[in-house]
Design a protein around this nucleic acid. Structure first.
Lengths: 352, 352
DNA sequence: CAACAATGATATATCGTTATATCAATTGTA
DNA sequence: TACAATTGATATAACGATATATCATTGTTG
């Protein structure tokens, strides 16, 4: 059961706000007539239309979406719940989604769950309370079943993305995580590395599990038995610190496959601080291809996923779902590309 | 006059959605009773309260905010319009705002105007239509008067931020732009630079005008007559390219005061590409102190503004406004700090 | 014990729209 | 000319909640 928000905004000066009533009076017609003109039903004469439009414009009339939505059972508001807004990959993705959906007349609100299930629950309740008509969702790690019950009761169209925890139940737009890290790992193996670690991420999010699987699969396929997963939170400073401790505790490791470009760049920075040269003494493969990946020194070898395009694709999948509510759920996996730049090379033993 | 959004979402399966009616029936009480229990008016007996709460929980009831808001004249939804979401400074700022306001029970929706006045107009209309109760706003460059008319008609509490175009009219939370760039410029002058350019930004946004003024004021105060403003869009690649062309066309310039860290880092990268060393052959001062500023090579001398704290402060100013609707409008300027790192030094002529 | 206040629950009107049904005025056809 | 069909506008009910007024039922007091 949901309690109300603690604080409310008392709307000021309600008297000033124009309504259909106000416009109808000024135009000298009835309320339904104004409503029809504004919605463009085409059942009103040109002369009356002009009168109404003029009045509405003069009064700066804007439809009250709450009333309209309540009566018509339709809405143009879409909610999005993501685990971390400020990450540059996600921020670009959000831009792609918003631009596409706004162009179609929708309004997107974004909430940051911080990958926390209680916060996610509150976010979903907030969206239901505010009558969002659809949801774009990155499910938080260990989402409880109660959350699904809530979503199911209120029955809104949902597209999950990035994390494929509910493929088949909802539409999904994702990344070929397993294939991508396999590809990255094989790239390092072909260069001659045998002590390769998986670097970055924390805990068992869907995405990370898949990526680690891809990494391990590539190791197995090439008969390598050394395997190591090293945690690091998803920011540059954490990547830097984790790399320093990795070098100290596991000097045998000569290459890492990273959970994201941000930690990869942090790791790269750590190497330079240790007087090493990324790509020479040690190889690094990133993930995401954020803008900084190509402009960093040295430029980062990474898995490229274009976040803005991902956002566009995600928006399109949602639009499709809304147009065809009855169609079966589908999963869309976007392609990736391994961009080989300067942070990967043959291991130093073979090199010297 | 505002037309409706082009597309709507037809809400499915309305029958399943629980309402006060449903809960009242299950609990065996009247609708107003349920409403009172859920709002916690305290006028209902403990025994009845329990019956109602149990029923509501079992049905996964969530209040319909549209109906509640329409009837009560109160809302907990806040809109935010910013010129660019994906910029890391802004993304962090947004996190600060959202976290603070969510904690207080508000729901924040963010729209990206892309500093385009038509798009901004549509954004504002969307927010009015969707009955946001307050607005956090970075006014787009050259905002027309019609936009202000619209805002004025619908009369919602507004706090502008970053760009102080409407100080006195609305509450404002900003940066001491002029003082900050003056400080940065004087730092360079004291090091011995005399050919200093202002670098980055495009067009005449409020913020940029103030910053350029601060730069020029410092030049005048120190009797320097060389002055140059060099455009660059606010991303790293544009900063890189602009720097290359600046070096080519104005080799006399030995230092730049930047409009933001992102372009400053691009410029720094361009120097390295030219075989120069930022801080040795050429000095750079950034603006914002984003995370990358301190971890870059070399670490960037910059004006520090903590975006997350800025967001918190902004949220607090809004909360204050909502609590005291009648209080006079106020402007809050957050302090800055010049962080001297490695990209500024005495000019090369004196150095060699 | 009558009169009155306090308590707990309910009846009713209302917020601003849109959907449906209705009605008046106009046009077309036999 | 009469009657149906069409067009243009309106009257009315409903969406789901809350505010206000009301109504029983208790408990209190002189």
């Amino acid at each position: 059961m949901i309690r109300f928000a603690k604080r409310f905004i008392k709307m000021l000066n309600m008297s000033k706000k124009p309504t259909l009533q106000t416009v109808a009076q000024k135009a000298g017609v009835s309320i339904p007539t104004v409503s029809q003109v504004l919605r463009g039903t085409g059942r009103i004469s040109a002369k009356t239309q002009k009168k109404v439009m003029d009045a509405a414009k003069a009064l700066h009339y804007v439809t009250d979406g709450r009333a309209a939505s309540m009566r018509s059972g339709q809405t143009s508001e879409i909610g999005m719940i993501i685990h971390y807004i400020a990450n540059p990959f996600n921020a670009e993705l959000i831009s792609g989604v918003s631009d596409t959906l706004e162009k179609e007349g929708y309004l997107v609100s974004i909430l940051d769950s911080q990958d926390n299930v209680e916060r996610q629950q509150r976010n979903i309740e907030a969206f239901i309370r505010s009558s969002r008509g659809a949801l774009l969702w990155v499910p938080a790690t260990n989402t409880p079943h109660d959350t699904l019950d809530l979503l199911n009761t209120h029955n809104l169209p949902i597209v999950t993305f990035l994390r494929g925890a509910y493929e088949g139940i909802f539409d999904h737009v994702g990344i070929q995580n397993e294939a991508a890290t396999s590809c990255a790992t094989e790239h390092l193996i072909h260069l001659g590395h045998s002590k390769i670690a998986y670097f970055g991420g924390v805990g068992a999010s869907e995405t990370r599990i898949r990526r680690v699987e891809g990494y391990e699969k590539a190791l197995r396929a090439n008969g390598l038995d050394y395997s190591l997963v090293w945690d690091a939170k998803d920011d540059k400073v954490s990547g830097l610190e984790a790399m320093l401790s990795l070098r100290e505790k596991h000097p045998e490791v000569t290459a890492i496959v990273c959970n994201g470009d941000v930690v990869a760049l942090g790791a790269s920075h750590a190497l330079r601080r240790l007087g090493e040269v990324p790509g020479k003494s040690f190889s690094i493969v990133g993930f995401d291809d954020i803008q900084d990946a190509s402009t960093a020194t040295p430029p980062l070898t990474t898995i490229a996923i274009e976040p803005y395009n991902f956002g566009i694709k995600l928006a399109q999948v949602l639009i499709n779902r809304l147009k065809n509510p009855k169609s079966p759920t589908a999963t869309t996996l976007l392609p990736f590309e391994l961009k080989i730049r300067a942070t990967t090379d043959v291991p130093i033993a073979d090199n010297s």
